[in-house]
């Protein structure tokens, strides 16, 4: 293992200290926790909290700030944060209008956030939650835990965050978040695995010419492996899976995210985006806004995911609303 770290057990703590040192105007850390909240928290509005394992930077703490999240809870690397930490976050950001938890669809995340919600409700804080499940690589049936939540989560942060910032109530913010979830789809692929610092070795191995299609953002294996192909073919495959699940018609408007997993050059992400833009244009689909970069990473994993969000009037307006966070600034 070759990493720029000190002790593996200190990576989350030291990372959070570095984030706070870089963005003191945006965020502060709740003492004795791994929770980042807005410097101004609590605010008199519905509060949004997201969180999950660390290793996905800038998710989740990078999206704390005006127009997006009020708090982010960091677990150990790839491990859901514990209920007490989420509970501390809820207490710190609640401004009396209620709190919406944005949970990605993983058993651990759901169990821990649910327990935290129960604790908060017992203290009289209004809490509700939404579960993000945008990964079309995973079959959605009653026989699995359902689709995973991956990069599409950023759009829930952005749009539900803008809705809350505009003064909407908890049920309206939740409704908008659920509309985003219903209209967002993602799929990814990996060229190389990643190494969890505490484990010290890769959770899986890919041969020199091999890629993994549909892998998750925790190094968990994907749906299948194949030989590396040209960028356009890979992009077509992932986009095809997304469009199979969420057909788009000429005249539809979308937001696009080409998300790097941590170890992918921007050059390659832009090459993919070129293809995605071409395909969408040929279908008469209008791209309202494109995001290319590292938004939801998986440590040093090389690879990317494509996310499409189908927009209506409300979602479009909220997507384009201003945001001022360490990882996403929109004017």
């Amino acid at each position: 293992m070759k990493k720029i770290i000190n002790m593996p057990e200190n990576v989350v703590d030291e990372m959070l200290k570095g984030v706070v040192a870089a963005h003191p105007a945006h965020i502060r850390r709740l003492e004795g926790t791994n929770v980042l909240v807005r410097a101004s928290a609590p605010n008199p509005k519905v509060a949004l909290i997201s969180g999950g394992g660390s290793g996905h930077e800038p998710t989740h703490g990078g999206y704390v700030g005006k127009g997006m999240l009020d708090g982010a809870v960091a677990g150990a690397v790839f491990t859901s944060p514990t209920p007490d930490q989420v509970f501390e976050a809820i207490k710190a950001v609640d401004g009396g209008k209620g709190v919406l938890l944005v949970i990605k669809n993983y058993t651990g995340d759901i169990l821990n956030f649910e327990m935290a919600a129960e604790m908060a409700e017992a203290e009289g804080i209004k809490v509700d939650s939404v579960v993000v499940n945008d990964d079309v690589a995973v079959e959605n049936s009653t026989w699995t835990s359902g689709r995973r939540g991956i990069a599409g989560t950023i759009f829930i942060h952005k749009i539900a965050g803008a809705k809350a910032e505009a003064g909407a109530g908890l049920s309206a913010v939740k409704q908008t978040a659920e509309k985003v979830i219903a209209n967002v789809r993602s799929m990814g692929m990996a060229l190389s695995p990643c190494i969890v610092p505490a484990a010290g070795k890769s959770s899986f191995i890919l041969e020199e010419n091999e890629v993994e299609i549909g892998m998750g953002i925790h190094g968990e294996p994907g749906t299948h492996r194949e030989e590396i192909r040209p960028a356009d073919e890979i992009a077509d495959h992932l986009l095809g899976k997304i469009l199979e699940d969420m057909p788009l018609a000429a005249g539809n408007e979308v937001a696009v995210m080409i998300n790097g997993l941590g170890g992918t050059p921007l050059m390659e992400l832009y090459i993919v985006n070129r293809r995605v833009a071409e395909v969408l244009e040929s279908k008469g689909v209008k791209v309202i806004r494109t995001y290319v970069g590292n938004y939801m990473t998986s440590l040093e994993m090389a690879g990317f995911s494509i996310t499409l969000l189908k927009l209506d009037g409300e979602l479009k307006e909220l997507l384009l609303a201003p945001a001022d966070t360490p990882a996403l600034v929109q004017i």
Binding site: T82, P83, D84, M115
Partner: peptide
Amino acid sequence: LISTVGGAAGPL
């Protein structure tokens, strides 16, 4: 265990 394990195993 609930406050230190994380994942699904902690709450379970």
